[in-house]
Design a protein around this nucleic acid. Structure first.
Length: 672
DNA sequence: TTACCTCGAGCTCA
DNA sequence: CTCGAGGTAA
């Protein structure tokens, strides 16, 4: 009697999902583990004997139902933006002041919540069923990690709602609870396996597992804090806090520490309160978040470039630690810039082991008077980069010496030059310096340049040190037999590398120009040059006036380019590369094709029906147009897709012509 | 900057 | 088993 079986299966799923929620989210089970297991097994048996009842949202299908995690790209319909940071109470006060002034009101109501230290993800529910989960990625495109997220016990596979919304996209953080982290690490240790260094890395590593069974074995948690897309009834439209409460009703886990507070006093009170509880909380947090609670006011404030103006992350002060400076190393970069780097006695701070800290330049070292042998205070500033905060002078041993930048390049012993008014000193040898040569070749081969897969740092070191490579052009003369003599290079690796080198011969002018590594010429300038000048020989012989005709090329960039191509050595490298068979298609129809969109500026907002943001931008650039991020009087067109942001409002305000995708394609096809 | 995962392939020892 | 390269995240 399948009808009866189906009804029982539905009932069991509801019960199991409910008790799962009580156990994992509420931490208040109402039945014993044994009873829960019985329900679970009954459902499993039922599904086994009636395979037609199996369904993806069944709690028996948390693991394995969808096979492997494939990390396929997922475009976010609503971008996952980052928040601006406030690093002190003064900055939090400044945020509150800007909000008050922006809204013209005296006391603002904020929704405050802890800022979890984990990984941002977005979950999509179709008709109440969890169908997709993705990482944040660059905010516009993330990776599909659905099978891994299905194993997270606090993520409901089905929302608790009689009439669930048609679509619900919810944003939140995947974390590992401190106790789960400790349990996992001791288990790993017992097995003699590598342990994780902190809960965040454990969560990140777990989410990046290909096999969801591995993920299932490592306990992750999830907390929801924001809404992405929503279609359906029932969502409160007035306040953020009400929306979060609604998510909680659907049995999505939300932070119990969230509060609604008012004004600066309210947010600072909250900050101090949470700060006091921090150590006792079951998970790591790195600050608190304030959001203007009224959604209409959020819209009023809008966005500045990539971050909302209505919210801020108020970070706790970065953890500091003391350690010793073993020595101050000097590294040579691609442009020959000499960078002093403090080699530190490894110290655990802010969740990682720090052993290097850049000191930026000579003046910076002197300002802080850092010396080899000093004891210093270090911290991880602005999220990632380790920083020497100050020297503890009373711990300075006798006979330390003031740091002196070497007068000769530490790699090639050529003279070091420091130009008037510049903070950086440079090795004067240019590409004759092996350090610069290595960097130049690495840059040439990099993904965004010539994209020679497999030509990495260790290999370039060997090739340059063995005098097998002097210039990028030599790459195309490498032989199988030569490569096979190198470390860790067998027949197969050598053949693969030669294949990659051969494929790279077919490129574009823009990539080629970028690959040359001309000072001040990045990816976008290279593209501008390729589009406007369109020919490598014309580019090589262009004078500075001609170069300045190219959009966005000013005197400094023009000078760099002209200077680069005046150098006979560089001209020879270009000619050698051409002789080695490096080639590209001439930009079709040349100038004529570009007249229409040349110099026109576009801004994209919202999701286009068929083109991704990237493709749209590429097509516009290919036609000579420019794509920027902000709408101003200089913007010629705003291309609007679904769910546009504030840029759309701005466009209407400034009377900038608005296109949809069709209009854009029309414009592009007119431009033949 | 550090830590982590995955992949392909080389290395090592049986 | 170990290494290098490539990728991601904060």
């Amino acid at each position: 009697m399948p009808a009866k079986a189906a009804a029982r299966a539905a009932e069991l799923r509801r019960l199991i999902e409910h008790h799962n929620y009580l156990y994992y989210v509420q931490d208040a089970p109402e039945i014993s583990d044994a009873e829960f297991d019985r329900l679970f097994r009954e459902l499993q048996d039922l599904e086994q004997s009636h395979p037609e009842l199996a369904s993806l949202d069944s709690p028996t299908q948390r693991v394995g139902a969808q096979g492997q995690t494939d990390f396929a790209p997922v475009a976010h319909a609503v971008p996952m933006l980052s928040l601006n940071n406030a690093l002190s109470e003064e900055e939090a006060a400044a945020f509150d002041r800007r909000v008050r002034e922006g809204l013209g009101i005296d006391a603002v109501e904020y929704a405050a919540e802890p800022k979890f230290d984990g990984l941002a993800v977005t979950l999509t529910y179709d008709n109440g069923v969890f169908v997709q989960g993705a990482t944040r990625g660059d905010g516009y495109t993330g990776e599909d990690v659905t099978p891994n997220l299905r194993t997270v016990r606090t993520i409901p596979l089905r929302l608790a709602a009689e009439r669930p919304p048609k679509t619900l996209e919810v944003r939140g953080e995947v974390i590992m609870l401190k106790k789960d982290f400790e349990r996992l690490n001791s288990a790993l240790q017992e097995k003699g396996e590598k342990t994780f260094v902190n809960p965040r890395n454990a969560a990140a590593g777990t989410l990046r597992q290909k096999d969801p069974r591995m993920t299932a074995a490592r306990p992750l948690s999830f907390y929801a804090y924001a809404l992405g897309r929503y279609e359906g009834h029932g969502l409160p439209a007035d306040k953020h806090s009400h929306q979060i409460a609604y998510l909680a009703q659907l049995h999505l886990p939300v932070s119990p520490l969230r509060r609604v507070v008012t004004g600066l006093e309210g947010i600072l009170g909250y900050y101090r309160d949470i700060g006091q509880q921090r150590a006792k909380l079951p998970y790591d947090i790195d600050g608190v978040v304030y959001k203007v609670n009224a959604l209409a006011r959020q819209r009023e404030l809008g966005f500045v470039s990539r971050a909302p103006r209505f919210a801020v992350a108020h970070k706790f002060p970065a953890e500091e630690a003391q350690t010793e400076v073993l020595e101050i190393d000097v590294q040579v970069g691609r442009t020959g810039a000499l960078t002093p780097v403090a080699k530190l006695k490894p110290v655990f701070v802010g969740g990682v082991t720090v052993s290097n800290a850049t000191l930026h330049n000579e003046d910076e070292v002197h300002r802080k008077d850092v010396r080899a042998g000093d004891t210093v205070v270090v911290r991880r500033a602005g999220d990632v980069i380790p920083e020497v905060v100050r020297v503890l002078l009373d711990k300075r041993p006798p006979q330390t010496r003031v740091f002196k930048l070497p007068r000769k390049c530490p790699v090639c012993h050529s003279d070091v030059e420091r130009l008037e008014g510049e903070a950086v000193a440079r090795c004067s040898a240019g590409l004759f310096c092996p350090a610069q040569r290595k960097q130049a070749i690495l840059h040439f081969a990099s993904r965004r340049a010539m994209d020679i897969e497999g030509l990495g740092e260790k290999l370039v070191d060997q090739l340059v040190d063995g005098d097998l490579l002097e210039t990028p052009a030599d790459i195309y003369r490498l032989k199988q037999a030569t490569l096979e003599r190198l470390e860790r290079m067998g027949e197969k690796s050598a053949a693969n590398l030669l294949g990659a080198i051969d494929r790279s011969r077919e490129t574009t002018l823009a990539r080629f120009v970028y690959a040359l590594g001309i000072r001040n010429v990045g990816e976008s300038t290279a593209r501008d040059l390729a589009n406007s000048i369109g020919d490598i020989h014309a580019l090589m012989s262009a004078d500075e006036d001609q170069l300045q005709q190219v959009p966005d090329v000013g005197p400094v960039v023009a000078q760099s380019i002209a200077h680069f191509f005046r150098e006979p050595h560089n001209r020879k490298v270009v000619n050698d590369l051409l002789a080695a068979g490096v080639r590209w298609k001439a930009p079709a129809a040349g100038i004529a094709r570009r007249t229409m969109l040349a110099g026109k500026t576009f801004v994209l907002t919202g999701t286009l029906p068929s083109l991704s943001r990237e493709t749209a931008a590429e097509r516009i650039q290919a036609a000579g147009g420019k794509v920027t991020g902000t709408v101003s009087k200089k913007t010629d067109y705003v291309v609007v897709g679904a769910d546009p942001g504030s840029k759309y409002d701005k466009a209407r305000e400034l009377d900038v012509p608005v296109l949809d995708e069709e209009g854009l394609l029309q414009l592009l096809s007119d431009d033949q």
